[in-house]
């Protein structure tokens, strides 16, 4: 007997799905804002003159980039309480996203910083600007502009990666899908639909980031 597809039975769970999508979006938003923010700080730290600070940030970046997100998540959610740091599912998931994206964006932004011509930095030094002022006003803008496409791709990857947060019962989209599947046993339909939703989220997020990049880095016409 051929399998009868039944997408209709998902309709009654639309609220659950919407909540899941909402949480996925919130996780991504928190991860992006805090992660990229920390990434900027990390990239600045890597230009520091202190070898210890440079090495510490470098080790952090390499460790995160060479271990699976799922393990980082488990470590934060299950491991940290041993040290007395107890986090809710949502907090642990957000923290994992931030920690992960911070490492990647540190590395990506660092590459952008290295592409800023040395002469511009010397010109700023000759204008008596401090290291922080130079970073903030001379280096950061052009560097971010240069790496924005790479950063955007990484943000999308992290958004998609958030699906494993279901494993610590953070109630994002995948968790919602698993939940529905356990109720109506329509695994294929549920996962098919949620995959489609992720695809839409990815396409939408990419478009949004493009727009953000455009508005951040466009030349302002006023004099």
């Amino acid at each position: 007997m051929a399998y009868q597809f039944d997408f209709g039975s998902l309709w009654e769970y639309r609220g659950v799905i919407a909540d899941g999508v909402g949480l996925t979006i919130r996780l991504t938003a928190v991860g992006t804002v805090a992660g990229v923010g920390l990434g900027i700080a990390g990239a600045f730290a890597r230009t520091s003159r202190s070898p210890a600070l440079k090495a510490a940030v470098g080790a952090y970046v390499e460790f995160i980039r060479n271990t699976p997100f799922l393990i980082q998540l488990f470590f934060i959610f299950f491991g940290l309480p041993v040290l007395g740091v107890k986090l809710s599912e949502w907090q642990a998931a957000s923290l994992a996203m931030v920690v992960n994206l911070a490492a990647y964006s540190t590395e990506i932004i660092r590459a952008g910083i290295q592409a800023v011509p040395k002469g511009q930095i010397e010109a700023a030094e000759a204008l008596a600007m401090s290291r922080l002022q130079i970073f903030r006003h001379v280096i950061l803008g052009p560097a971010m502009r240069k790496v924005w496409p790479a950063l955007s791709s990484q943000i999308v990857i992290v958004m998609l990666g958030s699906s494993v947060c279901s494993q610590i019962a953070a109630e994002e989209l995948t968790y919602a899908a698993n939940f529905i599947q356990s109720r109506n046993f329509r695994a294929f339909e549920v996962y098919f639909v949620s995959t489609g939703l992720y695809l839409i989220l990815a396409v939408g997020l990419r478009a949004l980031l493009k727009l953000v990049g455009w508005s951040l880095f466009r030349r302002r016409r006023h004099v």
Binding site: G119, Q120, E122, A123, A126, H137, V138
Partner: peptide
């Protein structure tokens, strides 16, 4: 002490 360079080094952004 101000300085002007051979390569201008204006801030492109």
């Amino acid at each position: 002490v101000g300085m002007v360079f051979q390569q201008f080094n204006l801030f492109p952004h």
